[in-house]
Design a protein around this nucleic acid. Sequence first.
DNA 1: AGACACTATCTTGTGACGCAAGATAGCGGA
DNA 2: TCCGCTATCTTGCGTCACAAGATAGTGTCT
Lengths: 110, 110
Amino acid sequence: MVTDPTAQLRRGVAEQCVLGLLRERARYGWELAETLGEHGLVASIGTLYPLLARLRSRGLVEAFERESETGPTRKYYRLTDAGRRELAAFRGQWAEFSRTVDDLLGREPE
Amino acid sequence: MVTDPTAQLRRGVAEQCVLGLLRERARYGWELAETLGEHGLVASIGTLYPLLARLRSRGLVEAFERESETGPTRKYYRLTDAGRRELAAFRGQWAEFSRTVDDLLGREPE
DNA sequence: AGACACTATCTTGTGACGCAAGATAGCGGA
DNA sequence: TCCGCTATCTTGCGTCACAAGATAGTGTCT
């Protein structure tokens, strides 16, 4: 098994990106996994459910069920006020962190 | 023990920032730890030595010893050609990754 | 009916790696 | 001698993404 080294980058970030995706509307797990997968932020849907459980136990999201017209019942997640605050705080941390990394990596792209 | 959640962000990144710091000149472990510590990229010097050993075993850096005028012998590290290529490749991956995260977090800072 | 594909959730075991703490040792000064 | 600073390396732990698989509801085709 070759274990993609970029997987390490996603640690702690995938979680916050879920909060980001929920800031405008509630979404269900499968939907989040597809979106994050397209952006390369989770490699496997198995990653997502424990992550959502963690967010929930920290009170950053809350869940409710709604039936689908075409398949099994879906579990939707929405941001709580605490989740919104967490997201805002993380945006600041991320901005500083990514700027620092940009500096340390150096700018020359060639 | 409270385990700083931002520690997760550093995973996989600290390593590459070492390569970045070595791109202009060789540095020794203690020096790297101080610099990275100031930038908040390693919380403890204990993190650094296993990291350097990994970079070395992957052939991305090479080491040589040089005596200090004021203390114990230092072990310096310099980039190899492979390390330089790795750094260049990672810069591209990082640019894409951080842009994606910026998007998913959303832009409104308030 | 039965078989299959698709959607959907959740669980389990593994591995990578940053963290805190500490061991070891050379150096200089009080 | 003792202490503090520099310097390297090791150990045990916790977190979390990954792959793989279990479970089950729905729809379609035959």
